[in-house]
């Protein structure tokens, strides 16, 4: 038996919004620790991973690990039927269920909606993602700042370079209409309202597709802050963490290389 109840639908709605433009379908792996997912986009340029830990849920029960193959567009359609304050309960049989049940209940518990989502058999390879590898540079900034930088720059062009030196990050773009750049310095005091922190072991300069960096802004409502981790020649890791260590959405984006 798998049963998981979120107090408010907002959490899962936001998480799905952050991933559904990158992934069409994926296996939601349920275990005693929580709900997780990993999938590459079709061109194999971006890997998206998501975890909702068991503590994110008001009720969480997973007797045996199970994998639910879900079409992201279908689950989003069903979750549109939940008001943001409604609770969401997901129930599935752990013995080869062919559908998952979604129950939405309003705050006064006098309106209860039931939906059944058909599950799919999805062949997916599980990838081993290096945990906390030794990054050359890590920058943390308010997620609203992230949105502003990459929505602005991706309008100019798709080739965005991130260069991080001691205490300064430079984001630049080259496009058909011209080019642009933006420098962001580490904020001075720790009690600054919107801190930017930059940790550099070695200066790094890498180029990425702006289209993807802009797509990741869909995760901004999840988290107040975002962390970007860079190592030359490796994928860029971008993490949006849910409050209270309830989980995260992480993207790994392949760099562009000069040939």
């Amino acid at each position: 038996m798998f049963e998981a109840k979120l107090t408010e639908s907002t959490t899962i709605k936001r998480v799905l919004d952050a991933i559904k433009d990158l992934i069409q379908q994926a296996n939601f792996d349920c275990s005693a620790d929580g709900l997780s997912l990993q999938a590459m986009d079709t061109p194999h340029v971006c890997l998206t991973t998501m975890t909702l830990r068991s503590q994110a849920f008001e009720v969480y029960r997973c007797d045996r690990p199970l994998s639910m193959g879900i079409n992201l567009s279908s689950i989003s359609k069903i979750l549109k039927c939940a008001a943001s304050k409604d609770s969401v309960k997901i129930v599935a049989d752990d013995e080869g269920a062919d559908c998952a049940e979604f129950i939405f209940e309003n705050e006064s518990a006098d309106r209860i909606a039931h939906f059944e989502l058909k599950l799919m058999d999805i062949d997916s390879e599980h990838l081993s993602i290096p945990e906390d590898s030794d990054y050359q540079a890590i920058i943390s900034m308010p997620s609203a700042e992230y949105r502003r930088i990459f929505s602005d720059l991706s309008i100019i062009g798709d080739t965005i370079t991130i260069e991080i030196n001691k205490n300064t990050a430079c984001f630049s773009v080259e496009g058909d209409i011209g080019n642009g750049s933006l420098n962001l310095a580490q904020t001075d005091s720790a009690d600054e309202k919107n801190p930017v922190t930059i940790n550099v072991k070695e200066p790094v300069k890498m180029t990425f597709p702006g289209k993807y960096l802009n797509t990741f802004t869909k995760a901004v409502p999840i988290s107040e802050f975002v962390t970007l981790c860079l190592t030359d020649g490796n994928p860029l890791a971008i993490e949006f963490s849910l409050p209270d260590e309830a989980g995260f959405v992480r993207y790994f984006l392949a760099p562009k290389i000069d040939q």
Binding site: H44, C46, L47, E125, H126, L127, S128, A254, I257, D258
Partner: peptide, 14 residues
Amino acid sequence: TPVQNDLDEFFAVC
């Protein structure tokens, strides 16, 4: 023009 890398080479299949 920079060419996009493929992620397959970065992550091993378990």
